[in-house]
Amino acid sequence: MRHWMAAVVLALLPSWGQAEPIEARAAPCLGCHGEHGQSEINDTPSLGGQQAPYVLIQLFMFREKLRVFEPMNEMAKALSDDDLRVLSDFIASLPKPLPPPDAGDPARLRRAEALARQFHCQSCHNADFSGRDNVPRVADQREDYLLKSLREYKDNSRHGYDGSMAEALQPVSAEEIADLAYYLARLR
């Protein structure tokens, strides 16, 4: 009798719920962002090895529409606070992205490396650009996504969680942003 009742209750549970393992729940995310932490889709970031607190903040901002990008606002809108925590921990566990086969033009890389030092990027993003707490990993991120993000932080069309990136990019020129994105995407 009890088994029968339990079966009915279980059948009535929504299919997208706590019972599902995180890998299954994250499958729709990885459809765009890549199965193994590496994104193959234009303007769509790799998520592998990303700092969990940073992911949580971005998912929160998408949910609350503090950061506006319609596909992600849609994906995030039904996430509970617990979902944010579980998802961000899972994403942090994905393998970090790899650099592209093209090692890049050495002169341009040297120029960009000097720019990163000049603008003190590593002060927050860490010596190897792997990030720390609320500061994201940017090493080996997709170049097109880095370009998009840096440009949007600079013209404030993307609001950061706090004002740090807006301040950091105040003096950085469009050309320097392009060089930095080129360099960070190819770190080896």
Partner: peptide
Amino acid sequence: AAQQPAAPLPPGSPLAGR
């Protein structure tokens, strides 16, 4: 040592003077 000469930091940078 590949040091960029100490260019003045971004006006407004929280890292000015770091």
